[in-house]
Design a protein around this nucleic acid. Structure first.
Length: 480
RNA sequence: GCCCCCAUCGUCUAGUGGCCUAGGACGCCGCCCUUUCAAGGCGGUAACGCCGGUUCGAAUCCGGUUGGGGGUACCA
């Protein structure tokens, strides 16, 4: 079997934060390119809309791709290319199309076009087709769409899609100022870069007949087309930067692992088949096929992403977990004084937190009591655990018991001690530990208590018990 | 309006004419474990939009219908 060369491309425009939809397209293209020894994934930044582009968006795209594992050190990666650098090529192509009669100049204003149609929804009527206009100010270049028949797009995902030429207007390929439009620039670049597979979002499907016509007019065989289903929100609308949480960066920021994100994204519209979902990229990559991609839209379910992320976090070994938490423990992101942090203490508590965080940023509220001077104040937790009952007695008795130097300061014996105190007050351990937990950590839920006490140390624990008792005292006299 | 796409549990999907009294995962609900909360274990809830064909047989093929969605710029 001969290996046909595969050159895929990913062509984002830097007009905003990098999108999860873009990430999925990139991943699909990446898999395709990596499946062949000579396969290439071309990154082309479509920066021709100067008004909306910003350099930081371009940076964002490149770093987000790298985060997903798509980076320039990989031999399959090519680029980044910048569309703005190819403006000459675009102009040449436009010129050639004009010379060959495949395109013509038109000086109609939008108002004139609408006036003639009498309906704002009807497109251009071909008024200037045979007026023989030359290039000049106020004249845009339009592509002459063939008169009869259809253009048939052979889509790998959707099959055969037919567009009657009668329903395609003579579209503009270059503005009056000579600058090319997306539909032209995109095709010229794809031709130039010898792209063989165009795998992109479904929103481009209606551009495709126009682009296919352009490929043919340029004397080239069109690429393999594949239009991916759109990713939608809970209202089943295409994800939008304005109303939906779509920035890959925001997920990264929350502590989603790239491997979990990649895994989840690959499953939006595609499935490796069978009953497996959690699967590393290395296994998915060779299994991926565009022809297996679904054609119906997919909801971006953050809950499921979270579940996947939890799976990946739990699969980490203890050291890796500590390592991966590090960025979220950086001084500028953390509520405790920098000098209070202790590597060893964190490493000791981390295994207890590992199964309790779904995203890495959650590590902070889980361990903050160890490094804060005083536990956080959470009124709801406080009133729940300290409400009239044995709370006060528990704290007082614990303070007393913990003072005994003969009591070894270690989780097992601390548990025994609290159990005894609880029993003497007629409380099971579940009830007995609550006031102590709140006094020491500030919260009603948290990591296993006795290990936490052990790590915090006898003195600090007693200090917090004393402080809680004092607060109880104040509350009592205030309400009296 | 016009062009185009789509249609299996709430969600992501498996399924490519008989293996389907439709499988998995997330969610949800029980139970177990348990110092809180997770994790884990066990069990449960829940779907082929509708109507017609084709066929011995249809989730799978065809037509229609309904309902969603995308596009409709001298944006990308």
């Amino acid at each position: 079997m001969t290996e046909t060369p595969i050159r895929t491309r990913f062509a984002p425009s830097p007009t905003g934060m990098f999108h999860v939809g873009g990430a999925r397209s990139a991943l699909f293209n990446w898999a395709l390119a990596r499946q062949r020894p000579d396969g290439r994934f071309v990154l082309r930044v479509e920066d021709t809309d100067a008004a909306r582009n910003k350099p930081e968006w371009t940076e964002g795209i490149i770093s987000a791709l790298a985060w997903l594992g798509i980076h320039e050190e990989d031999p399959h990666f090519e680029g980044p290319y910048f569309q703005s650098a190819y403006a000459d090529k675009h102009r040449e192509a436009a010129e050639a199309l004009f010379k060959e009669g495949r395109a013509y100049y038109c000086d109609c204003t939008r108002e004139q076009v609408q006036e003639r149609r009498g309906n704002p929804h009807l497109g251009y009527d071909g008024f200037c087709r045979d007026r023989g206009l030359e290039a000049g100010p106020g004249r845009a270049l339009r592509f002459r769409v063939p008169d009869g028949g259809p253009t048939v797009v052979d889509d790998r995902i959707r099959g055969r899609v037919e567009f009657e030429h009668a329903s395609i207007e003579d579209f503009v390929i270059a503005r009056a100022d000579g600058s090319p439009l997306f539909v032209l620039a995109n095709v010229v670049d794809d031709v130039e870069m010898e792209i063989t597979h165009v795998v992109r979002g479904e929103e481009h499907l209606s551009n495709t007949p126009k682009q296919q016509l352009l490929w043919q007019a340029l004397g080239r065989t069109p690429p393999v087309w594949a239009h991916l289903p759109v990713i939608v929100n809970e209202k089943r609308q295409k994800l939008s930067k304005r109303r939906d949480k779509v920035a890959l960066e925001s997920y990264q920021e929350e502590g989603y692992l790239p491997e979990a994100m990649v895994n989840y994204l690959m499953l939006l519209g595609w499935s490796p088949g069978g009953d497996r979902e959690i699967m590393p990229w290395s296994e998915m990559e060779p299994l991926f096929a565009v022809s297996d991609v679904n054609s119906s839209s997919a909801f971006f379910d953050e809950q499921k992403l979270r579940a996947f992320n939890g799976e990946y976090i739990r699969a980490l070994n203890a050291d890796e977990f500590v390592e991966r938490c590090r960025p979220w423990l950086a001084p500028e992101r953390v509520p405790w004084p920098e000098e209070n942090f202790d590597e060893d203490v964190f490493a000791a508590i981390a295994p207890l937190a590992q199964s309790r965080v779904a995203v890495l940023s959650e590590i902070v509220p889980n361990v903050d009591f160890l490094f804060l001077d005083e536990p956080v104040e959470d009124e709801k937790s406080w009133s729940k655990a300290m409400k009239p009952g044995a709370g006060r007695e528990m704290l007082a008795a614990a303070l007393e018991r913990f003072a005994d130097p003969a009591l070894p300061w270690e989780a097992g014996t601390l548990k025994g001690a609290l159990e005894e105190i609880g029993a003497s007050l007629g409380l099971k351990l579940g009830k007995a530990q609550a006031p102590v937990r709140v006094a020491v950590t500030g919260r009603t839920v948290g990591l296993p208590l006795f290990e936490s006490l052990e790590l915090l140390g006898r003195e600090r624990v007693r200090e917090r018990l004393r402080a809680a008792l004092a607060k109880l005292e104040r509350d009592a006299s205030a309400s009296a």
